[in-house]
Design a protein around this nucleic acid. Structure first.
Length: 434
RNA sequence: CGGGGCGUGGCGCAGCCUGGUAGCGCGCUUGUUUUGGGUACAAGAGGCCCCCGGUUCGAAUCCGGGCGCCCCGACCA
């Protein structure tokens, strides 16, 4: 992509409404534009990031045995009356009336709908377990949207739902999602710590929230420095490995301030105590038969009796992740994208547009990397190009200036470490390809 | 939902108190200049001053109502 022809409206100055770094940088780097309070348009560069995160999430859900489908954004009020949540949900639910005065709503979540679908389509114990999921826009009419996409009203979420015949099996589904989430965050290139979201009854409801550490996070978090995410990508989806992995990521103390237990906290050596702020980017939840029973969803068991499935739900805030990652990974100059989700892996900076050697090298690099690079071919000063590349946060910058171009060399800059290498073109290409 | 603030070219703001028909910086267009960290000069384009109503000879400015947006708090993927 040539920057001169792109729709990436970067800003030199910060819009007044943006208070925190990620919001400021998302606007300045031309990723999003606000269309209404808590509602954003995703511009080309922002959409690319969103799509990359979405794809990693999708691949890891599939790897865990979950199956993708797509449910609508608009739902019927009647469906929600079955579970009793239509009245219980309150003003956060955006209620809509159609031309026939039918009551509809813009879905804030999909437990009712997925339960209705499974109720219609699975009749026998042989049809379970199932973990359907979708990646779809949700709407929650937040009282006070803020922090850009971190607390929007409209947001993109991956939500999965597990249906199992018994508790043991449901717990296994829960552990599969735990692994899928840790693999997902690892591939994205961030550290997210699973934190107990329920202090409660042993054997009862079970839930973990996944937090990215960032000073501007909305939740206070407490955790044991001994927590190790480990290499989730090497863990297999068999029962023994899942149990071991689950054990390894959930035994060390980690809790948000809401669930903080000062008694347990006191037993941890001071040197290992860590307090900070976190941004919640995911949550997994086991809730048993709450919906299968209230919505009368059962399958026939081997003995001919009814089995009400044990359920769980599993969310990842895909659009929120974009903001959360920036919040965790930026500096004064701009965004520092992890390689896996950067809108463009490489930027080509032509410092002397119109110079024969510079133009030729840039054109060949552009052809080499194709869609995965952004070629700054504008008639701008070097300084402007450096500043914009740093702002946009491309993992690699290939700087092509007349000094090196004459020798067939370019300068390669790594955004994260600010390391610079002066290399022949072919070596620079090899290094970027890694 | 309580408390506070703001709405003036694309962005950041001044002007409002003390009414006289809009200004600055950045950005944009054209030309010259500069050429490794947001260059300098010149000439331009671009504004229903959030909306509606009122006061007045005259309203961005004063008054009333509405809408929108932001911040702090309580609530949430």
């Amino acid at each position: 992509m040539r920057l001169s022809q792109s729709l990436i409206p970067t800003l030199k100055e910060t819009p007044a409404e943006a208070q925190i770094a990620s919001h400021r940088l998302m606007l300045r780097a031309g990723l999003v534009r606000q269309m209404s309070s808590g509602i954003y348009a995703w511009l080309p560069a922002g959409l690319r990031v969103l799509a990359r995160i979405e794809q990693i999430v999708r691949e890891e859900q599939n790897a865990a045995g979950a199956q993708e489908l797509l449910m609508p954004t608009i739902q019927s009020a009647d469906l929600w009356r079955e579970s009793g949540r239509y009245d219980a949900y309150g003003k956060e639910m955006l209620r809509i009336t159609d031309r026939h005065d039918r009551e509809l709503l813009f879905g804030p979540t999909n437990e009712e709908m997925i339960t209705a679908i499974l109720r219609d389509t699975t009749k026998s114990y042989r049809d379970l377990p199932q973990i359907p999921y979708h990646i779809q826009w949700k709407f929650r009419d937040e009282v006070r949207p803020r922090f850009g996409v971190l607390r929007g009203r409209e947001f993109l979420m991956k939500d999965a739902y597990s249906f199992d015949l018994d508790y043991e099996s449901a717990l296994l589904s829960y552990k599969k999602m735990m692994l899928a989430y840790m693999r997902t965050f690892q591939r994205i290139g961030i550290t997210a710590i699973p934190m107990r979201a329920d202090t409660g009854q042993i054997g009862g409801d079970l839930s973990h929230e996944f937090h990215i550490l960032a000073p501007t996070g909305e939740s206070g978090v407490f955790y044991d420095a001994d927590f190790k995410a480990g290499n989730a990508l090497s863990v297999k989806y068999d029962e023994a490995a899942l149990n071991q992995f689950y054990q390894s990521v959930t035994t060390k103390y980690a809790a948000t301030d809401e669930k903080h237990d000062t008694e347990i906290w006191a037993t941890i050596p001071d040197a290992r105590k860590r307090e900070g702020r976190g941004i919640e980017v995911g949550q997994i939840f086991y809730f048993g038969k709450k919906y299968s029973e209230s919505m009368n969803y059962s399958v026939i068991g081997p003995d001919g009796g009814k089995i009400f499935p044990e359920m769980g739900s599993y969310g990842i805030g895909v659009s929120r992740l974009v903001g959360a990652i920036i919040e965790a990974q930026h500096d004064d100059a701009g965004i520092i994208w992890p390689d896996a989700i950067a809108p463009f892996r490489t930027a080509i900076l032509n410092l002397r547009q119109g110079d024969g050697a510079c133009d030729a090298i840039c054109e060949s690099l552009h052809a080499e990397f194709g869609d995965d690079c952004l070629y700054d071919n504008r008639e701008e000063r070097a300084g402007a190009k450096f500043a914009e590349a740093d702002l946009m946060g491309h993992p690699w910058q290939i700087i092509v200036g007349p000094r090196g171009a004459a020798k067939g060399e370019v300068e390669l800059k790594r955004r994260a470490s600010a390391e610079r290498f002066e290399l022949p073109v072919a070596q620079a290409v090899a290094m970027v390809r890694g």
